[in-house]
Amino acid sequence: MSGVFFDISERRQGEVALKHSQERFRAVVESAYDAIISADDRGNIASWNKGAQTIFGYRAEEVVGRPTTLLMPERYREAHQSGLERIRAIDDVGHVGRTQELYGLRRDGEEFPLELSLSAGKVPEGIFFTAIIRDITDRQRVQEALKRTVEKLKKTVQATVRALTSALEMRDPYTVGHQRRVTDLACAIAQDMGFSTEQIEGMRIIGFLHDIGKIAVPAEILTKPGKIGEHEFNIIKTHAEAGYNILKEIDFPCAVAKVVAQHHERLNGSGYPKGLSGSEILLEARILAVADVVEAMSSHRPYRPGLGTEAALQEITDKKGILYDPEVVDICVKLFTEKGFAFA
């Protein structure tokens, strides 16, 4: 008798524990802010929590037993039914289990954005589905506001670049044309090197501003015809650090000021202003160095006629690995000789 008693007692304890577990589970489901909805393999709603009522506006007695298509805009319903039929046909739920963003339909007919996490399982009665649905209306509003803020910041950066470029143009029209052409070549090199869209945009800002420090150089030196003396050249060389000092406090989306400071550094340490070498020089500065030299040699300067693109490409090829980054040089040469790049 004692054995039977203990067997019944253990069974009773198990039933009580199961009941408590189910009650706890129901409490969790009912207290969730997200909608938790289950449906059978026909797509009919089997359970509905308070979160679902809050999000969709229906009470449980209004939706249980009705198709889940009630909760979705017309444009999703055909694909939904086709998906259910496919799952029933192959009796496989393995591909279900992903999170996606869609639109739902409230009781009052309003569409709203939602995040859907769908899972499926098998019971003796067939396949059942459980959907956890989150209303992401507020999240999308925040994302849209953030997007507008980012666009506004981009426009502010562009306006800042234009203002600085215009200030330089008033003193030295030649330099602005040079900066535009260097920018075009530097961005083309960056693109061929696999830079992202954001990185190329950063390269564009850098290109347009790389000589902004020449604002600090007397105009009579910048526009002087004929040979420039050593003292005058030393004054011109200060433009790299001057550019850094002008730009360092502006919160650009990339290291604009540092690249501007380094664009006359050379791989072997013979450049200026700090004599950096090798990997001490940022990649963007190494790209800019090549683009800058090619444009400068190709174009007319106040103190000499242009030497032509062929001479410029020969110069960077001869100094490849010595003054200029080999990969950057190779890409630059291919742009001109194989891909039809030309200065506008």
Rank of each mutant, 00 (worst) to 15 (best):
I8G: 02
R11M: 11
A17K: 12
K19C: 07
S21F: 08
S31R: 09
S38T: 15
W48C: 01
K50R: 13
G51H: 07
Q53W: 04
Y58L: 00
R59F: 08
P67L: 08
T69P: 00
H80D: 11
S82F: 07
I87H: 04
V93H: 02
V93Y: 03
H95C: 00
G97S: 08
R98H: 14
E101Y: 11
L105E: 11
L114N: 08
E115Q: 14
K122H: 15
K122L: 12
V123H: 10
G126V: 07
I127K: 07
I132M: 15
R134S: 09
I136C: 02
V142C: 07
K155M: 14
V161C: 06
R162C: 06
M170P: 00
G177A: 06
Q179N: 15
R180K: 15
V182E: 02
L185H: 08
A188S: 14
D192L: 10
T197Y: 10
G202S: 05
G202L: 03
G207S: 09
D211T: 07
G213Q: 04
V217M: 02
P218V: 12
A219H: 07
I221S: 02
L222Q: 13
T223W: 05
H239N: 05
A242P: 08
G243S: 13
L247H: 05
K248P: 03
P253L: 01
V256S: 03
V256I: 07
A261W: 11
Q262C: 08
N268A: 10
Y272Q: 13
Y272D: 07
P273Q: 13
P273Y: 11
K274Y: 14
G275P: 01
L288M: 15
A289R: 13
D292I: 14
V293Y: 06
E295F: 08
A296D: 08
A296P: 00
K320R: 15
I322N: 04
Y324Q: 05
V328N: 01
D330K: 11
V333G: 03
F343R: 02
